[in-house]
């Protein structure tokens, strides 16, 4: 599904240049659940941002289902992103002024889905996420785990081909963290491709494959056998 070649990204400030990505090569198959791990500053978040079309690399190639994405302009990127990708963040990033229902509905609105269809889709996912009785609440009225469920629901409501998760359990205690990981696994089993950045090897153990980064390079790859067999 994803083929990345020779990706380079340099951050420049007035005084120093930091190479965040230094010739990354990797691929993700459809239906895979890939974890990206590595120490702080290894470039894993930058990689995720590039994959999510939130950031632009200096050079390299990024093919998504045979389409080259890096040559796109901002508008095309934005369109591609909202049609194909969903995001889950460490700090949930829900909009405080909107209710659970409205937060989940938002991407559908940007995708110009008609109102009745929106309602059906949101209700469907709210049911699936087990947060029906919360749909009228505002984010700050929910626990962290519930907030992350809402965030996951929002990422999934457009039925994206790829879900990008940036330390989804980082702000949660372990029991809520496990809940979220189980949810992601479940989604993956139902066919959604997931790429997740994480610090936690426990969380990584839920995935099919673990990619280790250091100083902007891929230093190792490990296949998680217990999960991969299911995939094959």
């Amino acid at each position: 599904m994803i083929k990345i070649e020779n990706l380079e990204k340099v951050y420049k400030t007035e005084e120093i240049e930091t190479t965040a990505l230094n010739g990354i090569n990797m691929h993700v198959k459809t239906g895979e659940f890939v974890s990206i791990m590595g120490p702080s500053g290894c470039g894993k978040s930058t990689l995720l941002n590039v994959m999510g079309l939130l950031d632009k690399p200096e050079s390299g190639s990024y093919k998504f289902l045979e389409t080259e994405l890096l040559s796109m302009n901002d508008k095309q990127r934005s369109n591609f992103r909202k049609q194909n990708m969903g995001f889950v963040f460490q700090n949930f990033n829900l909009i405080d002024e909107l209710t659970v229902f409205e937060n989940i509905e938002l991407p559908l609105i940007y995708n110009k889905v008609p109102a009745t269809e929106r309602k059906r889709l949101v209700n469907e996912i709210i049911e699936r996420m087990n947060i029906v009785n919360r749909s009228g609440h505002f984010p700050q009225q929910l626990s962290g785990g519930q907030q992350q469920r809402v965030a996951v629901a929002r990422a999934l409501v457009t039925k994206p081909k790829l879900v990008l998760a940036d330390e989804p359990t980082g702000n949660l205690d372990s029991s809520h963290g496990n809940e979220v990981m189980e949810l992601l696994c479940e989604l993956n089993e139902q066919g959604t491709t997931i790429v997740m950045v994480t610090h936690s090897s426990h969380d990584a153990s839920f995935s099919n494959r673990i990619i280790n980064l250091k100083d902007g390079h891929v230093i190792s790859e490990k296949i998680n056998k217990s999960r991969t067999e299911e995939l094959i």
Binding site: S78, F87, I95, R154
Partner: peptide, 15 residues
């Protein structure tokens, strides 16, 4: 934050 989220989800600058 609101701007960031909306942009990620697909909001254009115009909207």
């Amino acid at each position: 934050k609101e701007v960031g989220i909306k942009k990620t989800i697909g909001a254009t600058r115009g909207s």
